[in-house]
Nucleic acid binder design. Sequence first.
DNA 1: TATTGTTATACTCTATAACTATA
DNA 2: TATAGTTATAGAGTATAACAATA
Lengths: 159, 159
Amino acid sequence: MAETPLRTVPDLTGLLKHAGHVLETQLTAALAEIGLTPRMQCVLINALGQERTQIQLAEIAYLDKTTMVTTVDALEEAGFAERKPSATDRRARIIAVTEAGAEAAEEGQRIVDKVHAEALAALAASQRAPFADSLIELVNGQLATPVEAQPVRRARQRT
Amino acid sequence: MAETPLRTVPDLTGLLKHAGHVLETQLTAALAEIGLTPRMQCVLINALGQERTQIQLAEIAYLDKTTMVTTVDALEEAGFAERKPSATDRRARIIAVTEAGAEAAEEGQRIVDKVHAEALAALAASQRAPFADSLIELVNGQLATPVEAQPVRRARQRT
DNA sequence: TATTGTTATACTCTATAACTATA
DNA sequence: TATAGTTATAGAGTATAACAATA
C-alpha cells in the first residue's frame, strides 16, 4: 500500500515544467523593463538583419499565424517594427525592425542571456555544461516532438 | 549587427519549457489509457492511504481550490474517489479512494515512472543522475519561486 | 486551387468573487 | 470573523474558420 508516493524515479515532468515556468517569469519581469515580452523579443531578434515575413517568423518562434498578428501589432504600437510590403509577393508583409527596435532587441538579448547565465550560475561550475548539454540532447531526441492529443475539432457558426 | 542571434548562453527557458511540455504530452497520452489525467493521478496518489481534505490535496498538487473541485468531480465520475464527510470538521470533505481508484493510482504511478525512466534513458548512463540532480538543485534554489507578475485584479458583476 | 495576413470567434484553462454551511 | 467547498464567471491565451487579396 503506497503511503507516500515512493519515488524511485524523479518527477521530471514536474521539475521541468516548474523550472521553465519560473525562468519565464524571471525573463518576463526582466524584459518588461524595456517594454518587451519574451515573445516580442524572440520575433524582434529574428526579424533583425533579415527580411522575413510574418509566416516565416511565426515558424521560427513556434507561433500560430494569428498569434503572430497580435505580436506584430504590439511591436508596431511600441514603435519597434513596421509592416512593409514584400517586393516579391504582394500578399506578404516584411517585418522591418526600426532603430528603436534594433536597440531593444539587442538590449533584450543581453537581458535574456543574463537571466540564463544567472540560472546556470546557481550550479557548480563543473555541472553547468553537462546540464545544458543533457537538456539539449533530450530536446533534440527523446523529447523533440509532442505526442498528438486527440484532435479537438471545433464547430464554427456561420455569420 | 546581429544576423542570427548568436547564443553564447543556451536558451534555457525555451529548452526547459519545450522539454516539460513534450514530457507532459507523453504522460497525458500514457495515463489516458487507464482513464487518468496527470492531475487526477497526482491527486489520487496523494489521497491514497491518508485521510486528506480537498484543500490539503490542493496544496500538495499546487492547485486552486476551485480547480480541485472539478478534479474531484472527475475522480468521482470515474469511480476512483468519493467525497466523505470529515469526522472532525463538518465543512470539510475527505477524499476517499475507491478500490478501483487505488488500482488506477498504483498503475498510474508505474506509468509515470516508466515515462520518466524512458526519458532519462535517452541520456548516457553517466549523465542521468547528474542531470536530475542539477535540475532538482535549480528547482530548490534559484528557480524555486516564480517572480510575481503585476497582479491582475478582476472586477466581478453583482448578480 | 493554394497561400498571406486579417478578423471573428470558440474553446480551454485558470483564478476571482460571492455564497452557504460551519468553525 | 474566518475557513471548506461550491458556483458562476471573468480574463488570458490560443487555435479554428472564414475571408480578401494575391499567387
